[in-house]
């Protein structure tokens, strides 16, 4: 397999990463259209942040668990969750990943290693520690990766979790997607020291700051962290600097709290544009093949809408089922 000397990434992985990111972006754009039609009831767009989970999940297997946030469609797609089932979930259909009971903030597919998006900021972080504890107790080589935003840096449970993972040397990767805004509040205002990565050494773990708009950088940084985790050398914190192109949620106009200049700056460093250039520069692909990957994404997204549209809503009895495994 051809590998880039500069980055150590093989062609197949590079193409997978491009395909994953372009599929994610088209899926999110379609979600917006579905929301505008009133079919999809609320979402938090991940457009702009596709590189973060893509670079990490390139190293993961089905048995490795990832955990997400309220903004998690990109995590799910990067971990291989089925697009049809995702769209069905978002339209509230019985064929959805969660049978229509979870929706955008709770997509989960444990068989694919997606242990759940979570609507409470910071809430998933200790759960990831628990998944890693299972790995250690069962003697498997699985790792767990938890994504959280810069907003979660204000939650105390992050530090409880980092401490536990460190003293028990658990295979966890803490990934802060620092998209600069917790809802409308900039991290420059809310985060003392202006860095979460700098907080990691206090917990005796590496804290690294990565360009989260470069999938190549994400890939390389997480490669080391995941290998360490698999080898029993404990957790790592990755702070991925990124940007959400849209508002916090559907109807949020972000220009009320940020500038056009700032948006333009980040969009000029777009992760998909840069990966396209990388593929061509490395000789891994050409314009025609890249257009083909875009078209493939387009078709897959269209198919997901068709699948979701044709799927039934859940039976009303489903309101009451699966509250418990058994309750009598």
């Amino acid at each position: 397999m051809a590998k880039s000397k500069e980055t150590g990434i093989d062609k197949q992985t590079a193409l997978w990463m491009y395909q994953t990111m372009t599929t994610t972006r088209m899926f999110e754009a379609e979600c917006r259209r579905q929301a505008d039609q009133g079919k999809l009831r609320g979402m938090h767009s991940s457009i702009g942040q596709e590189a973060v989970p893509t670079g990490i999940c390139a190293h993961l297997k089905d048995g490795d668990q990832i955990l997400g946030t309220h903004r998690s469609h990109h995590h799910c797609i990067a971990k291989g969750v089925n697009l049809n089932e995702m769209m069905a979930e978002l339209l509230g259909k019985s064929t959805g990943t969660n049978k229509g009971k979870g929706g955008t903030m709770h997509i989960a597919d444990i068989n694919k290693g997606m242990l759940g998006a979570n609507g409470v900021v910071g809430s998933n972080i200790p759960v990831a520690v628990g998944a890693a504890l299972t790995s250690k107790l069962k003697g498997s080589q699985n790792v767990s990766v938890v994504f959280f935003g810069d907003g979660a840096v204000g939650q105390g449970v992050l530090y409880e979790s980092m401490n536990l993972a460190s003293i028990w040397k658990l295979p966890v990767i803490f990934v802060c997607e620092n998209n600069r805004y917790a809802e409308a509040t900039p991290f420059e205002y809310s985060m003392a020291g202006q860095s979460v990565a700098k907080r990691a050494p206090g917990f005796d773990m590496p804290g690294i700051n990565v360009d989260g708009q470069s999938v190549v950088e994400m890939y390389n940084a997480s490669k080391v962290a995941i290998q360490k985790a698999r080898n029993g050398e404990g957790p790592t914190l990755i702070e991925a600097m990124t940007y959400r192109y849209q508002g916090h949620f559907g109807a949020d106009p972000p220009l009320t709290y940020r500038t056009e200049e700032e948006e333009a700056l980040y969009k000029s460093k777009d992760c998909i544009d840069r990966m396209k250039s990388y593929l061509i520069d490395m000789g891994f692909s050409d314009e025609e093949e890249i257009s083909g990957m875009d078209e493939k994404a387009n078709i897959a997204v269209a198919e997901s809408v068709k699948f979701a549209d044709e799927s039934p809503f859940p039976n009303l009895e489903e309101l009451h089922t699966e509250v418990y495994v058994k309750y009598e």
Partner: peptide, 28 residues
């Protein structure tokens, strides 16, 4: 010590870890 595990005073941390362990096949 693996199965009888003293924790720091971090109830959110270790109960959350219990949830994650339970979700992935343990009975904490």
């Amino acid at each position: 010590e693996d199965r009888v595990r003293d924790t720091p005073i971090s109830e959110a941390g270790f109960i959350g870890a219990g949830v994650g362990a339970a979700a992935t096949g343990m009975r904490p």
